[in-house]
């Protein structure tokens, strides 16, 4: 890089930094402030007294908070491996030579789930998995599976939500892994094919090193996205039945905007933010490891 002045850089960057400080950082500081106060919107007479760390203490001892976080983790460790497995299978199909027209059709069709508005994904899920007139039960009936109560049963509702998540996010994995596969030098791959007919061995010894960065990215980004998961659940199950599908964001929204306990909701949000920051540190550390900056 040249030795010229860096002053212009400041002017180029300042507006975006100021904007992000104002809309991204200031609210977070305000949330921290609120989290130290008792603040219920539906109790204006009670005012907004300072309560120190009381809200955080409530978060730590709140079984519902931790069980919704636990549920979020369960969701994550169930959905993501499925997405990676199916995503890898699809990526290998798309990478394989031949049938080039069919492959481009498949590639384009993968865009549909990714572009579908999350809230609408939930609405579609609620329609498809309806016990009485949903098409899921109808299709399962063709292969003799009895009528399943998808959204009324806690386990099945969780499963249905995972199915919709798998539908929406597997293409993301596919496209990332496909990008990794295309990084494998053609000659190396062809040489390997001549040596062994086993696709599995090629995958393990030749392609895997190129897939690893993508896999790391998938793991971290999907974790962040599951912590964000709200829209789809809100429209599909609203966290029910019972609390079967109440993931962390749904729970915080309920405390904040249904119980209107904004002090507690802020404390919960701050705790969640800590998780988010840890995640992004990991992302930066493992994914951007070699970024030339």
């Amino acid at each position: 890089m040249s030795s010229r002045s860096n002053t212009p850089a400041f002017w180029f960057i300042a507006p975006s930094v100021i904007a992000l400080l104002a809309i991204g950082l200031a609210p977070i500081l305000f949330a921290v402030f609120n989290s130290l106060h008792e603040y219920n919107l539906a109790r204006p007479a009670a005012g907004k007294p300072f309560v120190g760390l009381e809200n955080y203490l409530t978060v730590l001892t709140d079984g519902t908070f931790w069980s919704s976080l636990g549920r979020t983790v369960t969701f994550l460790v169930t959905a993501v491996p499925i997405q990676i497995a199916i995503g890898l299978w699809a990526a290998l199909l798309l990478h394989r030579p031949g049938l080039s027209f069919m492959r481009s059709v498949a590639r384009v069709s993968l865009v549909i789930p990714l572009a579908t508005t999350y809230a609408v994904v939930g609405l579609i899920g609620r329609l498809i998995f309806n016990r009485e007139f949903g098409v899921a039960n109808d299709m399962l009936g063709w292969v003799g599976i009895p009528v399943t109560d998808w959204l009324g049963d806690p386990t099945m509702a969780f499963v249905a939500l995972i199915i919709m998540d798998v539908w929406q996010w597997t293409p993301f994995c596919t496209l990332i892994l496909l990008a990794g596969l295309s990084m494998v030098p053609k000659e190396t791959e062809e040489a390997a094919r001549l040596e062994t007919p086993s696709a599995l061995r090629i995958l393990r010894h030749v392609q895997m090193p190129f897939l690893l960065p993508g896999l790391t990215a998938i793991l971290i980004l999907r974790t962040a996205d599951v912590l964000k998961e709200f829209d789809k659940i809100f429209t599909m199950t609203r966290g029910g039945p019972g609390a079967a599908t109440e993931l962390i964001s749904v729970y915080i929204q309920r405390v904040g905007f249904r119980v209107f306990d904004l002090g507690l909701a802020s404390a919960q949000a701050v705790v969640l933010l800590v998780f988010c920051i840890v995640l992004s540190r990991l992302y930066i550390r493992y994914v951007y490891k070699e970024a030339e900056l």
């Binding site: 609210p27 904040g256 909701a265 969640l272 992302y283």
Partner: peptide, 17 residues
């Protein structure tokens, strides 16, 4: 990059206020 990871519910409460 960190902004990409932050869950919207974290901002929703203070931004609403």
């Amino acid at each position: 990059i960190t902004n990409r990871m932050v869950s919207p519910i974290v901002l929703a409460v203070p931004v609403f206020l």
